[in-house]
Amino acid sequence: MTDLLELAVSILEAGGIYALMALAYLVVLRPTGIINFAVGEWATLASFFSVATLGWWNLPYIPGAVLALAGVAAIGALTEQATVRPMIERGAPILTPILILLGMVVVYREAAALGFGTQNLRVPPPLGFGRIDLGPIAIPMQSAVVIAVSGIMLAGTWAFFERTIWGKAFQAVAIDRVAAGLMGINLRLVAAFSFAGGAAIAGTAGVLQAPLTSAHYLMGLPLAIKGFSALVIGGVGRVEGCILGGLVLAACERLVMRYAPIPSGFAIGVPLLLMILFLLVRPTGLIGARGRT
């Protein structure tokens, strides 16, 4: 059926965005133990930066997008050094940086509104808005881009953690921070890099999403919520969990919205309800983390 095929594309696309947001939480959470709710605002900032690089300065797509991501990665690293690290080094409880980052949500949002205004701004897509004809359905070009780029980024992050020694070092910090430190792993570098990496990943989600909707200063919160839901469903442990959580959440949303015989106003709440029920049954999510049973 055409509808199911179109929905499959929609699920992969939305699942990719949600998985990226979940991953942005994960790369900060595992090595540092900090839940960073500001990931949504990082996506917003990257979208705005891409308005500047791709729209105002008219750079070609790849350099422009990469520059936007580098910008938000720098902001991520700066945030860690300026606001999180002093708290950690003074031995503050883990709740303190979490609350600080929640405050940063407001700071980022106001900065975006003051810097770029409150109107929706257009972000150019890399390959236009055409369609790829594949037999019974046509895949929108931007959907294909979202699926491809999010897939590459997720696979690349997985490869980093599984295949490189630095990735192993990050995992070691996540499993046993004290032992890792005593083995000479530079905990500061790991923290800074995880924030920068998380920002770049969230930024990618923002830059992928914005051509379809626009860059606007309020786009962060829904992305942060979806990402967190995907993270929890997937198990807060591994990259595979983020991917699975994102796809499950997207599938839930799309299928309920399309086929459930309830008003769509209610259909909006169903995925979150399902997440709550799911967690009652299986609190650890779908996939366990390394170092835990």
Binding site: L7, I17, S143, P222, L223, I225, S264
Partner: peptide
């Protein structure tokens, strides 16, 4: 067809499929 789009929705394909149907 009576469809509501969620704030922050990343794509509206299912709702418009209902409209189309």
């Amino acid at each position: 067809a009576d469809e509501t789009f969620e704030r922050g929705v990343t794509d509206v394909t299912p709702a418009l499929q209902r409209v189309r149907a």
